[in-house]
Design a protein around this nucleic acid. Sequence first.
RNA 1: GGGCGGUUAGCUCAGUUGGGAGAGCGUCUGCCUUACAAGCAGAAUGUCGUCAGUUCGAUCCUGGCACUGCCCACCA
Length: 892
Amino acid sequence: MKLEIEKTYNPKSFEDKWYGYWLENNLFAPKAGKKKETFTMVIPPPNVTSVLHMGHGLNNTIQDILARYKRMQGYETLWVPGTDHAGIATQNVVERELAKEGKKRTDFTREEFVDRVWVTAKRHQQSIISQLRKMGCSADWNYEAFTFDEKRSKAVKKVFIELYDKGLIYKSKYIVNWCPRCGTALADDEVNHENRSGKIWHIKYPIKELPGEFIVVATTRPETLFGDTAVAFNDTDERFAKYRGKHFILPFMNREIPAIFDSYVDPAFGTGAVKITPAHDPNDFEMGLRHNLEFINIMNGDATMNDLVPEKFRGMDRTECRKAVVAALDEMGLLVKIEDHQHAVGQCYRCNTIIEPRYSDQWFVKMKELAEPALKAVADGKIEFLPSRWVKVYNNWLNNIRDWCISRQLWWGHRIPVYTCKSCGKMVAAEDTPEKCSCGCTEMKQEDDVLDTWFSSWLWPFSTLGWPEKTNDLAKFYPTSTLVTAPDIIFFWVARMIMAGLYFMNDVPFSRVFFTGMVMDLQGRKMSKSLGNGINPFDVIDRHGADALRYTMVAIVSPNQNLKLGFPKEGDKESTDSFEIGAKFANKIWNASRYILMNLPENFVPGKIETLKKDTFDNWILGQLNKTVKNVIDALDNARFNDAAKEMQSFFWGSFCDYYVELSKTRMLSTDENVKNTVLSILIYVLKEFLKLLHPIMPFITEELYQNLPEHGLSIMVEDYPEYKENLDDADALRKAQKFFDILYLARNIRGEMNVPLEKKLDILVKTADNDVIELCAAYEKELLTLAKGASVKVGADIVKPQGAATGANEYCEVFLPLEGIIDVKTELERLNKELGKVNKDFEKTSAKLNNENFTAKAPAEVIEKEKEKLAEFQSHLEKLQRNIELLKNMQ
RNA sequence: GGGCGGUUAGCUCAGUUGGGAGAGCGUCUGCCUUACAAGCAGAAUGUCGUCAGUUCGAUCCUGGCACUGCCCACCA
């Protein structure tokens, strides 16, 4: 055969080529296969805020592995790709871009700004898509979707209108998490709480009814006092009972505010007296509702002080104002003391700005009704979580669910489809602007706010398949099969998709969720821009290829563990390159394949495996391959990707290359054409089966090599995935091959430990009564000589150890290598004694166990039997070592 | 404050019905044995966090403790 493959593994020379080939042949499109079932996944749509990071690398690799695996197994497979418009995040990116040009959002009209965001979004969308392709993702691009494209917008409107009309969406004044930098409300779970050290200020408020007396309140936020409308005490706190019905004079404002009594107040905390600011604190808000207090908003949207505060504080930022208020209080003699204090501060998950609770008009979805079926679906096993421990997290959230704030004061996103009549104020939800209101008025104004980005993502599993149209795709591919995602969006996305699926489709959106670990740096820190510890997957592809990237991540990943990765920056030679694992494996596969292809005669036609006259090693390698197939399938079916990767590597490298290929070198020199033909046929067969097995993990190199094999088809992608066949297991061959490798090991061990140079060929004497060994040494003399660098082989029960020979022994044989002149009796004795010590330890442990009456009386018979066998093996091994030690001692 | 993980070789981690401690990387020794030096052969290395319990027997099961990471949570 003409050798078409390059001498060195160079992924750049073929990866893009094969991706193009797959596209040209439309191999990613769903096709009916032999299984008659579908396998569907929807991609967790990456945000169009930037390029992909390592987390996407992992997540999409796993999805692609599943897609390719299921496709080869004959499932009609669809993987839907797409991207997310990511409301706040994308708007922020564009605002930062504008800031560099010295501009801000409000310099533009809403339409102009949105157009500008579209440009950025498209640009990122394009690069995300090309990156997914670079990684080898076999998603069907005909299905590509965007959470803000026309079809998805239609779905969003339809869902909003339905929920609105059923009363599940409502508008209300509420205290929400407000990001002053982004200028919008956030949902509860978009706020990160972080412990910070702060202060508690103790402040005196004069008591109106008791001139000259004060109440001391403790607060972490003195700047909010302008909005205070009460001072609260615990209703059982006798210290303050005397203030019932009394009033306090709010400093600066000279406003009279009442004393209220509420069980919420902890008498042991602070001074036991709490200033209540219902418009600037969620707890105070609740108390405000309970006690009918006034809600006074003292800040603007950007957290500067508004006109409701005294003039000297107006326009100040809240932190600046805090200092000014404290200083003024101090001057007025109202500041009692300042204490240090640790407390959790809410921050915007997008820009880390400290959240300002804000009393405002917002839209909400009632969640209780949606949550119950979602809890049930998981409890009933209609959806399986892997690892299952995430079920608890999911349940806990749904059991304590609060209404979902879905309005955002942004420009980029789905605008809320609610229209208000200018004359009668009636509101309607509609797909398009209604021509006129029921009152006859023709002026209808749409809401300014847009929807939370997750309000479009939660529909993803069915909106991508064409809903609300009744499409064939929907009928065929919904519900989808597996969702692969990171656990940090279990609430944002996973739980909500389950709720939406059950509500709008009457069925779960997927039957299995696989939660991957998070990608960390080698020190176990999250990869982040600010730490600069991120790894760009495309730098890895550039250096090692996509296959190496994919293999490495999968080999390292573990269902219960985050994965730690390191990759040196340009010019850095010290740091660990985790991806060498994959690069080395790819290189090994490349070279082994090259060796096999190099040895193929022109137009070689491999014989059929079933009809070949196979020897022990042929049957052994076929058995090992078969076992590997079984284990890999089992691992992939249970999302144990690391096991699958390791299984394949240990087979290919440890069994196939280290033994079968090495043995083949001798056998291929055989003068018997049948032997040579058989070896080549089996090499080709095993390689091809292995490439198919590996293809889901390393799609490019497997295709490249496959295309160079004799009798290859259109693509390895459309080959059948290997299947386990019980009749290929061959216990006899396994036992014999293992014995041959044992002898080989004993001989190599001596040479290695004695540092015998390669060119020095030694006689190999094998003393044994074992028939397998005797037979093997005769049949594979040449192989043994080649692999153990021997000059001759003698085998039998009556072999006598020559003077000055080194010894190796196991439970059924002794190997002697004559090393006259090289061997030193003392070192040889030390070596054997060390070995003896090890075996003796095992022997004594086992023997003690068998001498323990409790053990023999209570342990199962088969365990006792196994221990007895072990004991016999140890004993036999021991005796051989002892005998040889005696012989050596006599020489001294 | 609640919940969930982790603790095994220098490093990163496997170890699923409790019965002779593993891999990869790194280290040491010897080899450019013509597929592969991104390689080959050989070697060294572990009170399996700690204390107790269950058991004939615990890295594995139960409980306590220590350290560590993450998630949730309105204590001013």
